[in-house]
Design a protein around this nucleic acid. Structure first.
Lengths: 256, 256
DNA sequence: GCGTGTCTGATTGTCTACAATCGGGTGGTC
DNA sequence: GACCACCCGATTGTAGACAATCAGACACGC
């Protein structure tokens, strides 16, 4: 997903330690992506025998990766009954958006204070991708791009904690969306409504940026809870059909 | 620790589903407590063969529980080298306190808006426990009570997300403390300095409460980073000696 | 004395097998 | 028809075994 955990090769003359992803790392990413994309539907059981087989790994590391997602709040573990994908209904969706608002508004203030030019450019670049995504009229691509604008804004805060929470919140937002409706719809004017985020960040206008964030999130929550109450045009896309299929994990890159 | 995951027995005539803690749940709690208390020192390796033996469980569920703590940020997993307790030095401590401030000030505002009388009473009760702890002059007990005041305040916000983050932040604050110094010291006037938290919550004074939270956290960070810069009297206690010892986990309560 | 190669023990990472649990289906009794 | 007991297949939870990896010690060559 968004975090790039690529090994950093030190530039000459100094070398940095090389870290390689473990099997558990890879499985956890795969599972998180599957939940984010809807391939693993909300509330659905995690059949560990079947899924570990699909991924080409044994049950041990699969279970370990799953426990990461349990801790993250994306999977639910019930002793004796196994794992399932969480669902986030209306009550919890309100709390989710409340937490999301805390993170994003706080990150916005920090970003205005301290984001460097490269970080600000990344938010602008993410917004450009949103503009491009809207031309494609592909709801999923638009939704991804929309969330990525928010994610880069939080990344620009420079706070590892806020960014970690935001990475999970993004998946949870998707879970809440899938819980609310089988259909995935995004507004057609997301690029326009998100433009003030970029402009106010560039202008270092903290209060204006926070207000823009709040407005977007408040509206998104209303649309999530009562879609008919919001009169905006949307791109629609039905959810992928059932039958979660996980691809085998690529062999770990050998050597170090 | 603070979250009580006790099974809720429904009052007659309706019964609620019974949930029992899994072995993985129990191990994770044990590990988290051991990090919080310093029994597992910062930076120390997690010897899974030895520790699972001490807990009386096999390595499988031990590894699963450890992965929860990896996701939580309390343990670090390095492929081929295993697990170790994280350390949080000065740079990360600043970011930690920044995140802590975000959570606690946001929770404070929500608590003022919506905490019921029972929740407010719990904050007051937590403060009473801090007063009692100071009479004992036991630094650990004081530190625990201090953090519990903060935790109950966040609990009073009613936000599951903020509370979950806060539960981890508390352990991380301890990790940062142990990283900074072998000695554990708490100020002797914590009850006095925390009193405005309770009073302003009771008075529903949001701005006043937020200011009080900020002041306490700012001062705590200064004391963490430069202890000599803060002239306050402290209770001191050396850290427990090395040799982490985990007690065997009680057998799961049979039946359902 | 320093650097490199090899060996060994400890530990990690993964796999497989077995016991325990759960849920659904079936048959018997009232 | 409703309820209960039993059985069986699927799945989970855990233990133990084996392969792979790492770190430290030692020997050798320069």
């Amino acid at each position: 997903m968004h975090p790039s955990s690529r090994a950093r090769v030190g530039s000459a003359p100094s070398l940095s330690p090389v870290t390689r992803p473990s099997t558990v790392d890879l499985i956890a990413v795969e599972l998180r992506n599957a939940i984010y994309s809807g391939a693993l539907p909300v509330g659905s059981p995690i059949r560990e025998v079947e899924m570990s087989g699909q991924l080409g790994v044994s049950r041990g590391p699969f279970r370990e990766a799953a426990q990461r997602l349990v801790q993250e709040g994306l999977l639910l573990s019930t002793p004796g009954r196994g794992l399932s994908v969480v669902s986030i209904g209306p009550d919890r969706a309100r709390a989710l958006y409340e937490a999301r608002t805390v993170v994003e508004t706080s990150a916005a203030r920090l970003a205005v204070e301290r984001a460097n030019a490269a970080q600000v450019a990344q938010v602008r670049s993410a917004h450009d991708a949103l503009v491009a995504a809207e031309r494609s009229e592909d709801a999923r691509r638009v939704g991804d791009a929309d969330l990525n604008v928010h994610w880069t804004l939080v990344a620009a805060s420079g706070s590892p904690w806020l960014l970690r929470w935001m990475t999970t919140l993004i998946v949870e937002v998707r879970v809440a969306t899938f819980t609310a409706s089988e259909e995935y719809a995004v507004r057609t004017d997301g690029a326009h409504s998100h433009l003030p985020l970029v402009e106010r960040l560039e202008a270092r206008d903290a209060d204006g940026l926070v207000a823009a964030v709040r407005e977007i999130l408040d509206e998104a929550l209303v649309r999530l809870l009562r879609p008919e109450a919001v009169e905006v045009e949307t791109f629609d896309e039905p959810r992928p059909g059932p039958g979660a299929r996980l691809e085998p994990i690529s062999p770990t890159i050998p050597g170090r």
